[in-house]
Amino acid sequence: MRSRNGDRPFIRSICTTIIVSSLSFLNAQEYLISYRYVAKNALSYNESFHVSHAMTQCGSQSYEPLILENTDNNNLKATLLKNFDLFFDYAKKLGLHVRHEEHTLNHQSSAFTTLTLKTTCFKVEFNDSFVIIQALK
């Protein structure tokens, strides 16, 4: 049955758009990601990278997205480790915390430098071939 104004295909396209967009929004998951790197006397000493599902909802404002290739069957940590340089460049824009301590005892010095990405919430959307990651404020 046609509608009174005969605008059936237009209404259908609007409904489809709304349903698809709401499904894609529901498909997006929220993850907490943290990174810590320690260098001792200019040598790599320790590196830790943690990824976990967020148990509470994060904020709604988001930064620009980072798009990576989805090669690891929706495994975020594996994807990020595979494209770590890209993710690190993205993290640099968010801001990294640096702490450096140097101790000189009787003219012999030792230094520790710690680089930290504080635990940040990311909205992650898995598509067939891409992973879209957006940091949330």
Binding site: L94, H100, E102
Partner: peptide, 8 residues
């Protein structure tokens, strides 16, 4: 010596 900062 120590330094503590956030760099973006």
């Amino acid at each position: 010596t120590s330094v503590d900062a956030m760099i973006r």
